[in-house]
Computed example of a mutant assay.
Amino acid sequence: MEQTILLHNPGAGDEDHLNTELVKAIEQEGFGCVYFSVKEDDSWKEQLDQADFAVVAGGDGTIRRVVKELVQRNALAKKIPIAILPMGTANNMSKTLGIDNELPRETHIKNWKKSKRQRFDIGVIKNPDTTDFFMESAGYGLFPNLMQAMEAADKSKVESAKDELKLALEVLHKLVLEADAEPYTLKTEGKTYEGKCLLLEVMNIQSIGPNLMLAPQASTADGVFDVVYVNEEQRQDFANYIQQLIDDKPDAAFSYNSFEAKELSIDCSSKYMHLDDELILPLKNPLALDVRENVLEFLVVGD
């Protein structure tokens, strides 16, 4: 019998009995299961080596919390694959991995028996003072601004994940029209890109934020980043595109500037940056970024 460790992030709207239901559903499919709430304490970290795979029940932030522990573990520690039960608002990680968040939880659990291991690269970001990692994206401009604005946004009328995603798009639209463009310099493989950008993202997955698809061709295991940026002269076109998304226009499209890179350096004067869902003060310029291949494994439905 394969043993799982269920790492759950109980949200404000979760029923008290949900953790019991999750454990029961997993055990009914023939898996052993031990439950931990990642909000309560860190005792789950000591139990990882006892499991054949970890189950993360939550959103992108919960996945990052678990991944952060796995990345920091000693190289001799057991390599544990991750299965996702998507329960967040945006679920950008599961979307990139082809995990349908519309499916019932029971279906996801059944799928683990026919799953395959999907390699997952991570991004490492460093300067002389510090080193950190990201699994989704790192960037400047609009998304750090959006993260701040959403903290202060009126969510009194938000009743569902769909409502929250639409609110985020509406806040983003306002920011696109008002935000200052920031000077940037990107260097990679003998090429230099310069200008003033509204958005600059180093993507390791396909979408970020309110499911904004910045890098539809991005792969979790191709050994390269998709570097995406929107320049000042694209401001109005980008605002129009966001408005089309708000209006649920199915043919909405926008041409991002982008290129692939395994290594690059960034110099940007933005006041803030983000690593995945963490808003941070910018690290000292210039930053060096590179891809570390096959650091993680996720369980996905096999072909």
Rank of each mutant, 00 (worst) to 15 (best):
F120T: 02
T192D: 06
G141R: 00
S156L: 12
A152T: 14
E106P: 08
T130Y: 13
T192A: 03
V158F: 00
K187E: 14
A138G: 10
T131K: 14
P128T: 12
K166C: 09
I109R: 03
K113Q: 15
T192E: 14
E182M: 12
L103H: 08
T192C: 07
R119C: 06
S115E: 04
K110E: 11
K155L: 10
E182V: 11
T192R: 09
S137K: 00
P128R: 15
Q148I: 02
Q118F: 00
Q148G: 10
W112T: 06
L186A: 05
E170W: 11
T130R: 10
W112R: 05
H173I: 03
E189V: 03
R117F: 02
K155R: 15
G139E: 02
K174Q: 15
K116D: 01
K174T: 10
K155S: 08
M135R: 00
H108Y: 11
T107M: 07
F143L: 12
K114W: 06
Y184Q: 05
E151M: 10
L186V: 06
L167Q: 15
A152V: 06
A181Y: 08
G139W: 00
Q148A: 04
G141T: 02
L172T: 02
M135C: 09
E170Q: 14
W112M: 13
H173D: 15
A181C: 05
V171T: 12
E136F: 06
F134I: 04
E106Y: 05
Q118K: 06
D163A: 11
D121T: 07
L186I: 10
P144I: 03
F120V: 01
A181N: 15
G141N: 06
E159G: 13
A181T: 09
R117Q: 15
A152Y: 08
F143S: 01
D121E: 11
D180P: 05
A153R: 07
E178N: 09
Q148H: 10
G190A: 07
P144S: 10
G141C: 09
E136P: 00
N127P: 10
K191Q: 15
M150T: 05
F134C: 04
K187N: 09
K116L: 02
Y184G: 02
G123R: 00
T185C: 11
T107I: 11
T185D: 12
L165C: 13
K166D: 14
F120D: 06
E136D: 12
I109Y: 03
G190P: 09
P183F: 08
K110Q: 14
K187H: 15
E178P: 04
R105Y: 08
G190I: 03
T185W: 03
E189S: 11
F133A: 03
L146P: 01
G141M: 01
M150P: 02
T188Q: 15
W112N: 01
M135D: 00
E106A: 05
R119T: 01
H108R: 09
I109K: 04
H108W: 14
A168W: 01
L169K: 14
